[in-house]
Structures are given as structure tokens and as C-alpha cells.
Amino acid sequence: MAEDHEILARALGPEGNGTTAETAALADRWATFPIIGGVDSLNVKAAAVVAFYATR
């Protein structure tokens, strides 16, 4: 979770290949969402909701 004084940016990419190599090179940390329970995928909008909620 970001502290009040930290800058936080999120880069969301498509399934499979994910973000570009250039974007990946700028990242300090990565987060992924495990897909379980017979779900084939998680669209980027749903992933954004989870990411924003987790770092509120």
C-alpha cells in the first residue's frame, strides 16, 4: 500500500503478453492476480477495480 508521501502508478496490460518491455522496465514492483475456480480470464477493468481497492 502506498504511504501518503509516495507516488503510486499502475500500469495495466492485456492478458498473455502483459505490458510492453518499456513499461516493465520502469516498474519497481509487480502484482499479479491468480486466476482460480474455473475463471478463464479477468478483464482489465475488473483488474483495475481490484488494484485500486487494494491500494486505497
Rank of each mutant, 00 (worst) to 15 (best):
A2W: 02
E3P: 00
V44A: 10
E22T: 09
I7V: 13
M1L: 05
Y53D: 14
E15F: 06
H5K: 09
H5T: 09
D4F: 02
H5M: 00
N43W: 00
L26G: 04
A11H: 08
R56P: 00
F33D: 03
T23Y: 04
V50Y: 01
Y53Q: 13
T55S: 13
V49L: 10
I35S: 05
G38K: 10
T55N: 14
G18N: 05
P14M: 02
A2K: 15
A31Q: 14
L8I: 06
F33L: 15
H5G: 11
S41R: 04
V50P: 00
W30Q: 14
A27F: 10
L42V: 15
A2L: 02
D4C: 00
V39C: 04
A21T: 13
A51S: 10
K45M: 06
D4I: 01
H5D: 10
V44Q: 06
G16C: 04
A25D: 11
V39Q: 15
T20W: 07
R56V: 04
D4V: 03
G13L: 01
E15K: 04
N43Q: 07
A54G: 07
H5N: 11
L26D: 07
G18H: 03
L26E: 13
T55I: 00
A31S: 14
D40M: 03
A25G: 07
A54D: 09
N43K: 07
E6R: 06
A11K: 03
G13Q: 06
G38Y: 06
